[in-house]
Design a binder for these strands. Structure first.
Lengths: 345, 345
DNA sequence: AAAGACTAAGTAAACGTTTACAAGGATAAC
DNA sequence: GTTATCCTTGTAAACGTTTACTTAGTCTTT
């Protein structure tokens, strides 16, 4: 049934060996540059390989040396604007080390993640970079029991069971809130993504810490829980407006929630930043295209992806054995949605 | 050196066979549901597999049956907002058929694409979905010579050398231009992406056809060539303004070019849509978040990705042998940047 | 000149599957 | 009761590599 499978020239190391009149072991050694070989044979083999257009079969190689040169990348959803840069960072780094990246969108469902882990395991990936949906540690344990090296992306790692790459979310949230306070805002709404994720929890505590350090009473009614989506940002603000609580600023847990929030405010005739200042988180590209330009906390997402693979490869090769946590420093990007640079009021 | 490689339970079919006291052939048959087996043994084997937490080794399987259950996906750049939805469509469809998707960002460089093709071939992927950078046919020929089934994404296929999935770009461009004309515009700028790509060429001809059918003289000075990037859209308009040609509308070859164009217009104090109407292409998500909301031609990107895999799988399994071209119908999304719905002037 | 020490190349086993073929047991047919 | 047929299971080869081990040849060394 298969696509022309018969007709296809499928050159193996054997064919090369025959043409160069040497043994297959010699061919292998020459092609991999292992052991010493006479230049004469080397030349003959290389020529034969070229003439036959030999391309090594990595699956056979993988079987033999137990190393597939591929890694899995599990994220919630590539359509979420946060992830493309991360994925690109991962892929670029993987490419340098000659790893193939298998992309998996698990939609933040623990069960899906588990399926993908098993799928990737049956493919015998050498490692997995993983944006875990919920910090439930079960999937980490699974990976551990399978012996697959893993690096957690965008998540702080409880108890250091695995290496992780993240941004200092607490600090970022602190900076965002502080910025709003310095703008003269006192009734600052916080729209969280998922507080079950370390990123959500940390941003919540950064928000509270900032209020505390300026002696502003933390008001539960101004704290919302959403889902890192546009709709969720929109809905949070709508609820807020209906409940008639006063507020003069919003700190949203990511940029698309911030945009959802602003859209809703606009819908109700509330101006940003004049009436309500808004700060987001992530600094996705859209933040500089959206109007008003979005003030936000920048995460070096591309670099995070790169670093994750650097770490993962170190685990795979055994260069690094114990978990390591890399925490990037966030940066406040002041733009229009918070009223810009000038300190007001 | 490798990560705990020694300590890891690595259960093979042999272990299962031993525990169930049958031959490995029987285990294989039972696990794959091939051939008839007695229910008694089946039960024993299944139990043993479960107890040992046996997970098949797909790389061994791939070697034996010459089918890796993985496909390559070569795109220019996942950070380009056009691609996430496409990739998601591809991955979702691949998942249904149990294929792993290996993602490759080739940045539209023919040489990179070639490298990735060879890389993917050495991994013995079963097929490749490919957004070719330039219509030079060389890489298609390479794929053909390697005997790898291929489906071209977002590209029309000259001479039907391979299957392809695309949108009717000529029609889309025609609709966009017609819309502007019906808005009363006569001096319509066209900013092309790459005219070397079928998508670019087709959009150019759609633009010209529309002008023609309304008896509007095609003016070379209003046609620009860019690169499908924000910067390129911005630069095109800047050049245009410096050259002092009159114009009252812009049709950009994709949405981010349109946004780049609008940003530049704004920079020069020109209002959209009051002074200049703008239409984009693709309908990326950003089009509905950007201000003004972007009038654009919608491509069903997610569906295109899905369909590409459907087609690719048909080629892989041999269900389909000759190339097939699927062309989706574009849709005009009228929003603010062209002045909205009401027919003006 | 003989023995020892290196080297370079070859032989064959192994990685974990699938599957053609062989073998044996049970059932059916006469 | 013998033979033919069918069905289930086992044996072993194969997929394309890598690599431990063997072998044979070359070079030292005395």
């Amino acid at each position: 049934m298969a696509y022309d499978k018969e007709n296809i020239r499928n050159v193996t190391i054997k064919d090369v060996a025959k043409r160069a009149e040497v043994s297959i072991a010699t061919v292998s050694r020459i092609l991999n540059g292992k052991g010493r070989v006479s230049p004469l044979l080397a030349e003959r083999v290389l020529l034969a390989a070229k003439e036959l257009q030999y391309q090594p079969n990595d699956v056979a190689r993988a079987l033999k040396i137990k190393e597939s040169r591929s890694i899995g990348l599990i994220i919630p959803d590539i359509e979420n604007p946060f992830f493309p840069a991360l994925v690109r960072g991962v892929q670029d780094a993987a490419k340098i080390h000659n790893y193939a990246v298998i992309l998996c969108n698990a939609d933040g469902k623990t069960e899906e993640e588990k399926k993908y882990i098993q799928f990737l395991y049956s493919k015998r990936v050498d490692g997995i970079a993983f944006t875990e949906s919920v910090d439930n540690k079960k999937n980490i344990a699974l990976l551990d029991s399978l012996g697959i090296p893993v690096v957690l992306l965008d998540r702080r790692v409880e108890g250091m069971k695995a290496s992780g790459v993240s941004t200092d979310n607490r600090l970022g949230a602190f900076m965002a809130t502080k910025h709003l306070i310095e703008k003269g805002k006192r009734r600052i709404v916080f729209i969280n993504g998922s507080p079950k994720l370390s990123s959500g929890a940390d941003r919540a505590s950064g928000y509270q810490d900032a209020l505390l350090s300026y002696n502003i009473q933390y008001d539960k009614k101004l704290a919302f829980i959403g889902a890192f989506t546009y709709e969720s940002g929109y809905a949070a603000v709508e609820n807020l407006l209906l409940s008639c609580h006063q507020f003069d600023a919003i700190f949203a847990s990511n940029d698309i929630m911030a945009i959802g929030a602003i859209e809703c405010l606009n819908q109700y005739g509330i101006r940003v930043p004049e009436d309500v200042a808004v700060v987001g988180f992530d600094d996705i590209r859209l933040a500089t295209w959206y109007k008003p330009l979005l003030t936000t906390i920048r995460q070096p997402v591309y670099e995070m992806g790169q670093y994750a693979i650097k770490l993962l490869v170190e685990h795979i090769t055994g260069e690094r054995s114990s978990p390591y946590e890399k925490i990037f420093v966030p940066e406040l990007m002041i733009r229009q949605s918070s009223g810009g640079l000038e300190e007001s009021k």
